[in-house]
């Protein structure tokens, strides 16, 4: 499979403090990659660098062969680099259907039309209904988001991302804050993601990582310290050191 998304030597300094150092990774079409790391490893900074929220001090981000390093966040989204958020960012007074319809309208370049009825676009509503049904959200599709369960809100984040028809999807801790009883529903939704979609998942839940990802990268203190198979990650000395610090030595 050819490389679809590539990050080369990405670095970021904040006033002399190096928060990301020389990060390079590649993602092929249809690949499932997980990015893990202890708290403060620089995962959120990495997501912000890749999505264009902050500018890197050095390095390149390429999508489909195009250098998108100089592009802003909105341009990157329009080229197919889509993210979900660690803490849900939804509109409490809107319904799940309205969220997804707005996303579909944007994909078709119709999201900011004045001379149209938002609820009158039956093609967009049909597509939204299909996406919401896939994620089991049909029943709550007409309820205000503020009134639906957090697990359903997390699923809605995924529904919105799917409605954007991304090429590369960054899932920022998709199961964060979800009660453990609802985690299987999230996992099921992740398993149903389109096979051609390249997915980079940032996650703390190792069980979820091991079941979802075919490859794992580990970030610690702003540096990539491991790239390999999920089965190998726990055995890697550097990873153990990063996660457990001096306890790793004490135990060995």
């Amino acid at each position: 499979m050819s490389t679809l998304f590539e990050v080369s030597n990405l670095s970021k300094e904040f006033g002399g403090l190096q928060v990301s150092r020389d990060i390079s990774l590649a993602l092929a079409e249809g690949e499932r990659l997980a990015l893990i790391g202890p708290n403060g490893a620089g995962k959120t900074t990495f997501v912000n660098l890749v999505t264009g929220r902050i500018r890197p001090s050095a390095g390149q981000v390429r999508l489909g062969g195009e250098d998108i390093t100089a592009l802003g966040a909105v341009q990157r989204v329009r080229r197919g680099l889509v993210r979900t958020f660690q803490v849900t960012r939804l509109f409490p007074d809107m319904t799940p259907e309205e969220h997804v319809v707005m996303t579909i309208l944007q994909r078709h370049g119709r999201a900011t039309r004045i001379f149209a009825r938002f609820h009158g676009d039956s093609a967009a509503r049909d597509e939204a209904a299909e996406i919401l049904a896939t994620l089991g959200l049909t029943e709550v599709s007409s309820r205000k988001v503020a009134t639906i369960a957090y697990g359903q809100q997390r699923l809605l984040e995924i529904a919105i991302a799917l409605a954007q028809r991304p090429k590369v999807l960054l899932l920022d801790e998709p199961a964060a804050g979800v009660p453990s009883a609802d985690t299987p529903r999230i996992e099921e939704a992740l398993a149903q993601l389109p096979p051609s979609l390249a997915v980079l998942m940032i996650e703390h839940d190792m069980d979820l990582v091991f079941r979802f990802a075919k490859r794992v990268v580990v970030l610690a203190a702003g540096e990539l310290i491991f790239q390999g198979l999920p089965a190998e990650v726990a055995r890697d000395a550097k990873v153990r050191e990063a996660y457990l610090g001096s306890y790793a030595h004490a135990g060995s």
């Binding site: 989204v77 509109f91 707005m102 999201a111 900011t112 039309r113 004045i114 149209a116 009825r117 938002f118």
Partner: peptide, 23 residues
């Protein structure tokens, strides 16, 4: 109540979410 009006409401609530939609 047009798509434009809904996006404005969205911008009031969370501009970052709107930009993540590519708007």
């Amino acid at each position: 109540r047009s798509p434009f009006g809904m996006v404005c409401r969205g911008l009031k609530e969370d501009p970052l979410r709107i930009s993540a939609l590519g708007i």
